[in-house]
Design a protein around this nucleic acid. Sequence first.
DNA 1: CAACCGCCCTGGGTGC
DNA 2: TGCACCCAGGGCGGTT
Length: 291
Amino acid sequence: MPELPEVETVRRGLEELVGRRLGTAVVAHPRAVRRQGGGAGELIARTSDLTVTSANRRGKYLWLGLGAGDQLLVAHLGMSGQFRILGTTDPRPASDPHARAWWPLDNGQVLVFRDQRTFGWVLADEPEGRAAADGESVPASVSHIARDPFDPRFDASAAVTAIRRSRSGIKRVLLAQTIVSGIGNIYADEALWRARVHPETPANRLSRARTANVLTAASEVMADALKAGGTSFDPLFVAINGESGWFDRSLDAYGRHGQPCPRCGTAIVRERFTNRSSHRCPRCQRLPVTR
DNA sequence: CAACCGCCCTGGGTGC
DNA sequence: TGCACCCAGGGCGGTT
């Protein structure tokens, strides 16, 4: 599943589009543009015949700056979304059952958004009303998403304070994207394992130090994954050959139920967590004793 | 308003 | 072999 490291790998691949001009967009599946008021016609009208000026990301959201900068092509990969840049000899996207939308480029290549499970989407958007003092701004559709740990302006100390104001379990807070973004189910489990914190620990019962440890662990595990993802994929293919590539890295907890904890040898357990799974070491990651 | 639940969707895997 | 089910999950809209 694409979480922050994978999405950043995709963003780096999209950077080669800067300076290229998008031709007339094609939308092959209405669900891919379900967030677009006006539907496919609107997306096509607003993203066609414009030059790409930048490739950007916050958390798991991607966007391309287009034209003079007041037009943004935003995308979320969901569970299975991909961007591909097809060469002139590659099969045409019209013959790809998972191609949802595409843009011919002025050099004969084609930018394609593919998505097997259709949780992803693309959206023609504009910058949020108020740009920051330095001119930095994000799409309106991304303005509710917190900065991620790779953002130079991410304030870890403020994030610790905010996390500790919540009565929810720490994992739920990490997944909400409202205090820190970019963390999904895999890296949440990995970060909590590294920090030795039970995923259901109420956030307001964590010390500042333990909370900071969780954030540091999340940053580190995602940085490690980015290092692996960034070197193991040809950027031309914008990550992924099939979907298994996302998991091709060493994980300590996620998906390892029944296997020994790399730290203490106790079998990792899998537990239901809001319609998905949590993986943890029952010995290293315990709930605080309630009184 | 914080918290939380259900739902959207496909295809690989599994058990009968 | 085929069929019915389960599972993976991000995030949004709705409810409490």
